[in-house]
Nucleic acid binder design. Structure first.
Length: 483
DNA sequence: ATCGGCTCGCGCAA
DNA sequence: TGCGCGAAGCCGAT
């Protein structure tokens, strides 16, 4: 029996319009036993459109729902820091799914292989997967979809306005913004969760080989960079994301418009690790912020970051395969960087000097120290940080490679579209316009440490970072000398 | 303290 | 085809 339940759901429910992509042309196996949702990026039980879609299909076919997560610890630049955060989130997610009658299978394996064997084992009718907008995950999904003997569909579950609402790569924020604002009110609505009517009752114990009951122990046992240690300021999980969101709204949002660029105080939300691992839905955050009584100016400034800039980054990665290469640069930027390729660099640091925050520039060193010890950099400082990498590297290619390496290695939100777009903006003018030419940078927008110091209470930033670092980082000085 | 110029190309209006 | 405008830039002039 072949059922078209998946198409019916996508057509009937406008919530899924432009979000669903069919990854293979195999039939939905109506004679199967369950629906499998392969959780990849959207690692949450609430506000998850991929989960909602899978539950809708399950209910349509009157089958139970099983969530699969494959833990792949050979992920490039994996660290104990990132894994513990992720596992803390998965522990909460597994518990929440269980309360709603959804099975959860957690295995340590290559997920794109594991999902295929699990789908056979549990006789899946169809497989639903969420979308991470990046190349690696795209390859994983298409490789699995090719081998699956049943229908596999992908759901864009981590945008507010669907990424495919715009069908091509955008030139800049100013081209995407009006397209988003035009339809935004239709998307800023509460979407109730859907749970399967039939609980998953089969024994899942025999299908899993690990548990996420003890995230710290599991993270420390993995074959990943253990010297990049977990951080204490951000523990993973949807509940932690929600309390961080609420305290941000109460304490920082009112001043966000004025203070977000003042590095002397930390007025940022700190939500990006949670958004990166899909531990909170961007819609949940946007609704909470727009419903707050903070000044409109602040609400708008935050929604600009959360929606316009974040979805511009997703648009970049989705439509431009070269998002992690200089080839992703606009023509004018490539030309200007080429023209200035052999300009003398006043300072060139080795990767090791950079990684250890040993430059002549104490403000830059503070940003690098914040990255290594906290797994984040203040938004404004991150721009200056990457701009200086362009100035202090032998070539733009080196600068880009070092920025991506350091960000992916240490940041809790590494390997995210936001990071790729940010670094591309800084180093090769992506989504930016040209500026008067200067050495090394050419027409790429320049930023100076001196100006930052003039404008901001930079000593407050430096001393805040020093406090972070008072428990001197093993990871700072014992940093791996790889590469 | 504020302002314009720098410089390119998209995308809309005409 | 013309024209407004853009992530947070810098710099010099008023």
């Amino acid at each position: 029996m072949i059922l078209e339940g998946i198409e019916m759901l996508a057509d009937a429910d406008s919530l899924f319009e432009k979000r669903v992509v069919q990854l293979n042309s195999r039939p939905v196996d109506g004679g199967g036993d369950c629906i499998v949702y392969w959780m990849q990026r959207s690692q949450r039980a609430y506000g998850n459109l991929a989960l909602k879609y899978a539950a809708g299909v399950a209910n349509h076919l009157q089958k139970p729902l099983l969530v699969y997560f494959g833990l792949y610890d050979r992920y490039p630049m994996g660290s104990a820091r990132a894994f513990r955060f992720m596992l803390e989130g998965l522990k909460e997610t597994a518990a929440a799914l269980g309360e709603h009658g959804v099975g959860f299978v957690f295995r340590r394996e290559q997920p794109w292989v594991g999902v295929v064997s699990l789908a056979e084992q549990v006789r899946a009718c169809a497989v639903v997967v969420d979308e991470d907008y990046l190349k690696t995950g795209r390859v994983w999904r298409s490789s699995a979809a090719e081998r699956l003997r049943m229908r596999c569909v992908q759901v864009d579950a981590d945008t507010i306005v669907p990424a495919r609402n715009t069908p091509k790569e955008e030139w800049g924020a100013y081209t995407l913004r009006p397209k988003i604002l035009k339809v935004l009110q239709d998307y800023l609505i509460d979407i109730p969760d859907t749970w399967p009517q039939r609980p998953f009752e089969a024994h899942v114990d025999s299908w899993r080989d690990i548990t996420c009951e003890d995230p710290a122990a599991l993270a420390s046992s993995l074959d990943v960079e253990q010297k990049v240690a977990p951080v204490e300021w951000a523990r993973g999980g949807h509940s932690k994301a929600v309390s961080r969101l609420n305290s941000f709204i109460d304490n920082k949002l009112p001043d966000y418009a004025q203070e977000r660029n003042e590095i002397g105080v930390d007025c940022t939300s700190g939500l990006s690790p949670y958004l990166h691992f899909g531990q909170i839905s961007p819609l949940e955050a946007a609704l909470a912020v727009s419903g707050s009584d903070a000044p409109d100016e602040s609400v708008d400034a935050f929604l600009e970051q959360l929606i316009v800039r974040r979805e511009l980054a997703i648009n970049f990665c989705l439509y431009n395969d070269k998002y992690d290469s200089l080839d992703g640069a606009p023509q004018w930027a490539r030309e200007t960087l080429e023209r200035h390729r052999s300009d003398p660099r006043p300072e060139v640091y080795s990767l090791q000097e950079l990684e250890r925050a040993q430059t002549h520039d104490e403000l830059w060193n503070a940003a690098q120290t914040e990255l290594v010890s906290a797994g984040r950099i203040h938004g404004y400082m991150r721009m200056l940080w990457a701009k200086k990498l362009l100035e202090w590297s032998e070539s733009p290619e080196d600068a880009l490679a070092r920025a991506l390496f350091l960000n992916d290695k240490y940041a809790l939100d590494g390997r995210d579209p936001n990071g790729y777009a940010n670094i591309a903006w800084c180093i090769y003018g992506k989504h930016d316009r040209p500026f008067p030419s200067r050495p090394v940078f050419g027409r790429i927008r320049y930023m100076s440490t001196a100006a930052a110091k003039r404008k901001m209470r930079w000593q407050d930033y430096v001393s805040r970072v020093q406090k972070l670092n008072k428990n001197p980082l093993k990871s700072l000085h014992g940093a791996d000398q790889n590469r």
